[in-house]
Structure formats: structure tokens, C-alpha cells
């Protein structure tokens, strides 16, 4: 599904990722863990095509296509979804209106019929339950005045509605209490299938006890320095990141 090869990328001309290589197969859930500032969000943002992030070397292939040459909206229409670490507030843009426009853009791209207001509302109501969001939120402006947890749940709600093939979650768990964490994990687990892949970026192991990953990777200094199974996450939780950094330093 996703092949990242020797990716060198950064923001505003500063290189953050120094040759990152990662392969995510269809139906797999991968977790990427790493200390603050290691480049986790940079990876997520480069994959989504956020402005100001640029790629200097390497390649990203998504379903056999060159992901990096696609405009932002095309990546989304092709099934890439990024749940952002810091979702932006957009006053004046109605949440439900926005999401309907998004879904219909995606459906049109897939050759599916657009949903009318009623059909969309039915779908939205069903997905809202999954993330335990009140309907009142849906009629507010996108993320405006939402608490941190509500913003994160809104991201998962959008993900559930858009049904992406590749979902990237950038620290969606950070700052959530255990109930919200379960909701987020539930949302991702609902998406899980042999057709969907998930890339979970997280700083803590916590989420991974609700969302059992197939693979865990450690990102440090702009590279994947260690990969393993779900037990790697537990090891990291016990020993902290210094252990990895020391191991990397020793090996280098």
C-alpha cells in the first residue's frame, strides 16, 4: 500500500527526515513511536502534502502511484487521511457542510454517486455514535471552540465518514483521558480490515493497548532506528527512549 524509500524531507528548508524507509502493507496497522522532535509529524505532514514541507530526496509510492506528485486533495480522494496533531479552527465553515462537501468530492473521484443532504445526515449520525460526538457539534464551525478532546474526536469522526484506505493518526491520543482514548481506538478499530491500513503515530504506548499494532517502529533523529512487533512498544514504555538513543549511538 505504502512504500517510503530513503525519504529526506523538512520544513522551511530545514531537513528533519534524513533517509526514512518504511513499508506498510494492505490491511496492516503500523505504529510509529519516537521522542519529541524526532520528525513524526514531519513524516505525517509530508505524506498529506502540507504546505511548507518539502522533500529533497527519496520517494513515496502509494498503491503503485507517486504520492508526492499528487495535489493535497487528490491524495485525500485516493484514500489517504491524516488525523492532525493540531486540527485548525475554521470559523464560519459549518462542520457538517464541510464534511459533506469532502465526502462528495471523494465519492465523485471514486466514480460513486454523490450523497444528498438526507443520505449524508444518516451516514453522519451513524458515525457520530462511534466517536460519541453530540449532534450539536456537527452544526458548529469546524473545530471552533472545541476542546482538545473534541477536536481529536472530530478527526476520527471525519475519518470514519471518509473511510480512507490509509489512515495516518498523528498523536491523536495525546492529551486524551482514558475514555476519549478508548473512543479513538474504537474508531480506528472499526476502520480496521484487510483493505485498510493504519499508521499510528504516538508518543506513548497507552493507545497501543487498545489498538494492537502489527508492527512498531521507532523514529529517532529522522530515521527509523528500530522495528519490531507490539512487544517493542511495551519495551519502550518500560525503558524510555534514551535506551534506543543509546543503542543507536552505540551501533553508529
Amino acid at each position: 500500500m505504502l512504500e517510503i524509500k530513503n525519504l529526506h524531507a523538512g520544513i522551511d528548508g530545514k531537513e528533519i527526515l534524513h533517509g526514512l524507509t518504511l513499508s506498510v502493507g494492505t490491511g496492516e496497522v503500523h505504529a510509529i513511536m519516537g521522542p519529541n522532535g524526532s520528525g513524526k509529524s514531519t513524516l505525517a505532514n509530508v505524506l498529506a502534502g502540507r504546505p511548507r514541507y518539502s522533500v529533497t530526496a527519496g520517494s513515496v509510492t502509494y498503491e503503485g502511484k507517486d504520492l508526492l506528485s499528487m495535489p493535497v486533495e487528490e491524495r485525500a480522494r485516493e484514500g489517504v487521511f491524516l488525523a492532525m496533531q493540531y486540527p485548525v479552527e475554521i470559523p464560519g465553515v459549518n462542520n457538517i457542510y464541510f464534511l459533506k462537501a469532502a465526502l462528495n468530492s471523494v465519492r465523485k473521484h471514486r466514480g460513486e454517486e454523490e450523497l444528498d443532504a438526507l443520505e449524508f445526515l444518516q451516514l453522519a449520525r451513524q458515525k457520530m455514535k462511534v466517536v460519541d460526538l453530540d449532534e450539536a457539534f456537527m452544526n458548529r464551525a469546524v473545530n471552533e471552540g472545541f476542546s482538545g478532546g473534541e477536536k481529536k474526536r472530530n478527526e476520527i469522526f471525519q475519518m470514519a465518514v471518509l473511510d480512507p484506505k490509509l489512515a495516518i493518526l498523528d498523536e491523536t491520543d495525546s492529551g486524551l483521558d482514558i475514555d476519549a482514548l478508548r473512543i479513538v481506538a474504537g474508531g480506528v478499530n472499526a476502520l480496521r480490515s484487510e483493505k485498510h491500513s493504519v499508521l499510528v503515530i504516538t508518543h506513548y504506548q497507552r493507545l497501543l493497548s487498545y489498538l494492537i499494532p502489527d508492527f512498531v517502529h521507532v523514529l529517532a533523529n529522522g530515521r527509523i532506528v528500530k522495528s519490531g512487533g507490539k512487544e517493542l512498544a511495551e519495551e519502550l514504555e518500560q525503558k524510555g527512549y534514551e535506551w534506543i538513543e543509546q543503542e543507536v549511538a552505540a551501533g553508529a
Binding site: A48, G49, R50, P51, R52, P71, V72, E73, R75, A76, R77, F81, L82, M84, P87, V88, I90, P91, G92, V93, F98, L99, A101, A102, L103, S105, V106, H109, A141, V142, Q158, L162
Partner: peptide, 29 residues
Amino acid sequence: EEEPLFYLRSRGIGESEARDMLVYAFASE
């Protein structure tokens, strides 16, 4: 602003539509 525009586009909304939505939003106040 770049950020809201990116957010809308990252959900599949085309650039010109996203721009119009933001202009609407600006006027909607």
C-alpha cells in the same frame, strides 16, 4: 490563510472550492 485551506483540501475538497468556502466563511460574520 494557508492552514485552513490545507485542512479543507486534506479532506478531498478541491482548491478553488476550498477557497470559496473560506471566503464565504469570512463574509458570514
